[in-house]
Design a protein around this nucleic acid. Structure first.
Lengths: 144, 144
DNA sequence: AACAGATAGATTGCGTACAATCCAATTGTA
DNA sequence: TACAATTGGATTGTACGCAATCTATCTGTT
């Protein structure tokens, strides 16, 4: 028995730590690109949902992004201040708040669509590893 | 050409988003276990560094964890308040701050060492996927 | 119609993250 | 040995992330 009782507590033997660290580093990689279009990473993924859905409630956006109202409410207010989205209560159900794109928000899509490929080049994962990573992460998410 | 110009901006086609989401979900998985020993996830990985190194400067801890003084200073002060660590300026170089474990901090290791296996069971990744994920994430980190 | 329970967001509070800046201690160099 | 540049932490300000709680609205049941 070469391994001590506490081997499992070493940083190098963790799977979750590189996941956590990688996530942060990748988000940091986005920063210079996102700075140019005046978005943070979280604001960017919120805009992605809107670029795909045009109009969506806070509730449904939260389901897509795995974020709750405590995060989304101030985030969407910031996006509103920046002039990219509008927030309006649903007339059908006053509890529900519908988020829509403004002209500026829609136009931003044009500036944003080059970002994924630029990030792809930064990361320089080969196609197989990227595919594997995608597959494993989705499997993990499904289980949780 | 079936794909539109903006396909690359769809959430489902992202690699970074599941990385970001997975990381958060996994950290959340730790919470019930870490609550029992009065640590947050970030505090836990800081303690891991100390359990392995006994004594370390803030600078070096930051290099292990990819965190800067803006995060570590308040975090280590909290751990000090909780009685798990001590912070003392180095006598060799007064700029440097050495962090050491207290008796309680050292004792916490005994309560913590069951956590990795419990998390492992929660995630239920098979051995090959876990290995692949570990390999790819480390490759990614190396490139960044 | 009345009311209990459920639902959607908003708010509050705490703990990260991190860029930017500041300060004191140290080091390299003329 | 002065002194400019560097270094290690601390501080400040902004933006999440999320648990817990609150409020207004809606829904189902009687």
């Amino acid at each position: 028995m070469l391994e001590g009782k506490y081997e499992c507590l070493k940083l190098d033997n963790q799977l979750c730590f590189p996941l956590y660290a990688c996530s942060k580093e990748v988000v940091r990689k986005y920063k210079p690109f996102l700075d140019k279009i005046n978005l943070t990473y979280t604001q960017y993924i919120a805009m992605m949902v809107l670029w795909e859905h045009e109009e969506i409630s806070v509730k449904r956006m939260g389901e897509y992004l795995y974020l709750d109202s405590g995060t989304l409410t101030p985030l969407l207010k910031t996006l509103e201040k920046k002039g990219f989205v509008e927030r309006k209560r649903s007339s059908v159900d006053e509890r529900s708040l519908n988020v829509t794109l403004t002209k500026d928000g829609e136009a931003l899509k044009e500036k944003a669509f080059t970002i994924p490929s630029q990030i792809g080049q930064c990361l320089a994962l080969n196609r197989e590893d990227a595919k594997e990573l995608y597959r494993i992460l989705h499997r993990l998410m499904d289980q949780m």
